[in-house]
Computed example of a mutant assay.
Amino acid sequence: MNTSDPTVQPVPASVVEQVDAADVTLSNPKRAVISLGSNLGNRLETLQGAIDALEDTPGVRIKAVSPVYETQPWGVEPGSQPSYFNAVVLLKTTLPPSSLLERGHAIEEAFERVRDEQWGPRTIDVDIVAYQDVLSDDPTLTLPHPRAHERAFVLVPWLDVDPEAEVPGRGPVAELVGAVGQEGVVARTDLELRLPE
């Protein structure tokens, strides 16, 4: 990890120890889907920074990054916040869901995300949408994400990188996109996120 980069927080020692032996080979990795969103500051740069920070995590390897989409904020009055840039990342990981969540929160904190209000504006949002085929109603981390199946800003970029994807317990992403529609989810073909090398 590049410790000179102030936007990347160190992974807690407990997590490093947990996956240290598996970091090179990623023995028996699990598939995870991460949704990213930003509507404050340099949105594209922040999304790329979050992707790079995920890749810098021991036990995580990013396999695909979706195109960038611009969307209106969810759950607030139109025009009350800047629009979002959204993307979805597919990764393989040896981290358990709880440690992946911990890393996501550390990345949010590194980019100074503020949690003053529900549906409030944010520099970065890092959500675990799905982890393998796990179904869990744990209030700390519900899997799959409890609203992913109704959010076009998650489903549309996810479909781009995995046309055969399914939301566990909810069905194929392609069918869910058909049900919720794509209104307000605008492809930003002028922008691009890099897959870490």
Rank of each mutant, 00 (worst) to 15 (best):
E175A: 10
R122N: 03
D138V: 12
G79I: 03
E164A: 14
A106I: 01
L91T: 07
A32R: 10
A87Q: 10
I107S: 13
R31I: 11
A165F: 04
S14A: 06
G184D: 02
A22V: 02
W119M: 06
L54T: 09
Q18L: 10
G181W: 04
A130Q: 08
V89H: 13
T3Y: 07
A32V: 06
H105E: 06
G181Y: 05
W74H: 12
L40S: 06
Q182F: 00
G120Q: 03
E166D: 14
P12C: 00
E117M: 08
D125T: 09
D137M: 08
G104S: 11
R113G: 03
L54H: 11
E112R: 15
G59H: 10
L54N: 14
V8N: 06
D52M: 04
Q18I: 00
E45W: 03
R31S: 15
A64C: 05
D52N: 15
L47C: 06
L176Y: 03
D138S: 14
A187K: 15
T140E: 07
N39C: 05
D116S: 15
E112K: 15
S98M: 11
R31T: 13
V16D: 01
V8C: 09
V154F: 13
V16E: 06
V114F: 01
G169D: 07
N2T: 06
P96G: 01
S83M: 09
F111R: 15
V154L: 12
T7H: 13
Y69L: 05
V76S: 09
G59M: 05
H105W: 02
V15M: 13
I34A: 07
V65A: 14
V15T: 15
A21S: 12
A187E: 10
Q48W: 00
